[in-house]
Design a protein around this nucleic acid. Structure first.
Length: 307
DNA sequence: AGCACA
């Protein structure tokens, strides 16, 4: 097990209290707006009316260790910016002081990446609630998690806007496709603005702040400007969801920690740059991390010492 | 604003 993995508490003193009182939060409504009654029709997760993915791979996370007063919003904010995040469901145990939740992802690698990044984090500094995140026993019964066929508008008609985010603030479950936009934050607490609207966070990146790519494309990426509190496991959790990911090595013996991430080819590394550039990690407090092509490929010994 | 390891 990843028993050695220990995530220090995030530098936030608390969970970025939303600017709205709890009662008036725009999220307050989805608490009681859950359409599906708690009918755990598990055991048969097959739905033959839908063209399911070939193997019904588990892509739902089970989150334990939540405090009893956890809010949907908190679970949502925890996972919303992980690539592939689809939706989350909070289940309060009622009598107990513990709650649990499920987070649905587009595929298992995305789910595993989010799992690695969130497992073991201290969710509540006051009660020292530590999250235990694992793959769920079965996938959540979602309406239409992902349509791989070419009939996209059977249940999704109102969200067909080219502007990606529906106003799911008062919806039932919290859906969001963080797939192909270069999401700007993984920590879930980007700024107060995200509590009041669902603008894609990427628009807060002004083009002038973009990183010039000086180095020629390389399958290995150089990663900098992530927080000191960031663990290698957290980075692996983020990067391992990228196609072609091979390995990640963190280097923190010098002042600012950096990391090298190896991909199978430059297509994959380029895709990862585009996807994760500027992303703010959960453990981060400042700017997002900066990705560049590395100056040399990881693990490639220089064979041309002499001509 | 920082590019190591083999």
């Amino acid at each position: 097990m990843a028993a050695s993995y220990y995530n220090p508490p995030p530098p936030h003193s608390s969970y970025a209290p939303p600017p709205l009182p709890p009662g008036t939060s725009p999220y307050a409504s989805y608490r009681h707006a859950y359409p599906p009654p708690p009918a755990p029709a598990y055991g048969g997760c097959y739905d033959h009316s839908e063209p399911l993915p070939p193997r019904d791979e588990l892509r739902t996370l089970f989150i334990a260790g939540l405090p009893g007063d956890a809010k949907d919003r908190e679970v949502y904010n925890l996972f919303r910016d992980f690539p592939g995040y689809v939706s989350s469901h909070l289940r309060s145990s009622g009598k107990s002081s513990q709650a649990y939740a499920f987070a649905v992802f587009a595929d298992q690698p995305s789910a595993l990446a989010a799992m690695t990044s969130t497992n073991g984090i201290i969710f509540d500094l006051e009660t020292n609630c530590t999250l235990h995140v694992d793959l769920a026993k079965s996938n959540s019964r979602s309406k239409r998690p992902r349509t791989d066929d070419t009939s996209p508008d059977s249940s999704d008609k109102k969200t067909r806007h080219p502007r990606e985010f529906p106003d799911s603030g008062a919806g039932s479950n919290i859906h969001m496709s963080g797939m192909s936009n270069s999401s700007h934050s993984l920590n879930g607490y980007p700024s107060a603005q995200s509590y009041t609207n669902f603008e894609p966070a990427s628009l807060s990146k002004d083009p002038s702040a973009f990183v010039p790519q000086n180095n020629p494309p390389c399958p290995t990426l150089f990663v900098a400007n992530f927080g000191q509190a960031c663990s290698e496991q957290e980075l692996i959790g983020v990067f391992s969801s990228c196609v072609g990911f091979i390995k990640l090595k963190m280097q923190k013996k010098f002042g600012a920690p950096v990391a090298f991430v190896d991909f199978k080819d430059v297509n994959s590394s380029t895709e990862a740059i585009n996807r994760l550039q500027g992303v703010i990690l959960y453990s981060s407090m400042g700017e997002g991390m900066r990705l560049e092509y590395a100056k040399s490929r990881m693990g490639q010994r220089k064979r041309d010492k002499h001509p």
